[in-house]
Design a protein around this nucleic acid. Structure first.
Lengths: 206, 206
DNA sequence: GTCTATAGCTGGATAGAC
DNA sequence: GTCTATCCAGCTATAGAC
């Protein structure tokens, strides 16, 4: 039994549930292997055990596939970040949320790039999918508020901090924890800064 | 006089100096407009006022052009970061270097992506060009050392901080200063953290 | 060195038979 | 809905005349 025959067989089985879902699963396998931009309709069809016209029976275009993947990723992200943490102290909840965020990003880099970076030319997620991602970021804002952090500048600083950690981790130590292990330190540093009195004029201390 | 004729004329003028340089200048124009991945040999030839075979008279391949561009960018980066700042106090030198870094990255995003991100599949800069980039990062380390920061964990934390600021600035407020204006605050926050006694066990404060 | 012309490939998307 | 077959556009790179 050839590889193609096996794929075709599993295709016929699974399509009772959802053909779209089977195609999307194959799409995730492809982008994890080849990178986001490496997704081609030919390759995807081959991996899913069908032909290209079949793809167009379920998706209008390649961008339509990206958008469906974005929707899946945004939903996973939202549900992960919405996990209740009211039992934790404010600072612990913040560190815990950041660790969940970092794990989410590093465990599937292709998903991270699709969701948070603008690496596909011409692709814009649908408003519907995008709303999920925004909702998830709001839970992060809520955790900051529980720590008494509400200054917009501090919120911007926090997004730079958390994405900086994740970005360095992915770029310079994939699979490791050289940067993610700094999360507790970073939370301490950040909260100490936010709670300190207004920082003095830079020129005065320079 | 058509656009192509004008380009061809300027081509014949400038090739007295360096044909390679003229091609590279056109290449920078293209990538700033179309993005790094949008560079095509056809388009580049048209912009430079020549035909594709002429490009191959000066460069072995498309990657060879990317590599030459990487070399130019790395050299600009090295010389910018090497600017003397011994007249400044340690903390001011650090803030100043960070601002130079941020300006360098934000004023030419395509150059930033070529130099610091791995966005071109299959492209690896030559060791020679790469050495320039590494040398520049060493000057940043020297500025940190002047502030008394030598712990490797703190160096990693600093790279995450500065790249996080730049990344958010480019992604979410291109052309603005929503994140780069936080640099002085970030330097204060970072140095205060490095100089504070060992942070307590996270579990104890949570 | 520079041109015209084109090879050779890969991509997204579709026509039409079944 | 799924196939075979194909269109058409874009790409890198080269052959060969001059």
């Amino acid at each position: 039994m050839s590889k193609t025959e096996a794929a075709a067989s599993s295709w016929r089985e699974s399509r009772r549930r959802s053909a779209r879902e089977t195609i999307l699963e194959a799409a995730w396998v492809v982008v994890r292997e080849q990178g986001l931009a490496g997704l081609s309709m030919r390759d995807l069809a081959r991996r899913a055990g069908v032909t290209t016209p079949t793809l167009y029976a379920y998706f209008e275009s390649k961008y339509d596939i990206y958008d469906a993947m974005f929707g899946q990723a945004a939903d996973e992200f939202r549900s992960l970040m919405a996990e209740a943490d009211d039992d934790l102290a404010p600072r612990a909840a913040m560190a815990d949320g950041t660790k969940r965020f970092a794990r989410f990003c590093t465990e599937d880099v292709a998903r991270y790039q699709l969701l948070f970076q603008r690496t596909i030319p011409g692709f814009e997620p649908s408003a519907d999918s995008y709303a999920h991602a925004v909702a998830a970021l709001d839970t992060a804002r809520a955790r900051l508020a529980r720590c008494g952090v509400t200054d917009p500048r501090h919120l911007d600083l926090w997004t730079a901090l958390s994405t900086g950690l994740v970005d360095q981790q992915i770029s310079n130590d994939p699979g490791g924890d050289r940067w993610t292990r700094l999360i507790d330190d970073v939370v301490d540093m950040f909260l100490a800064h936010c709670r300190s009195p207004q920082s003095p004029d830079p020129a005065a201390t320079a």
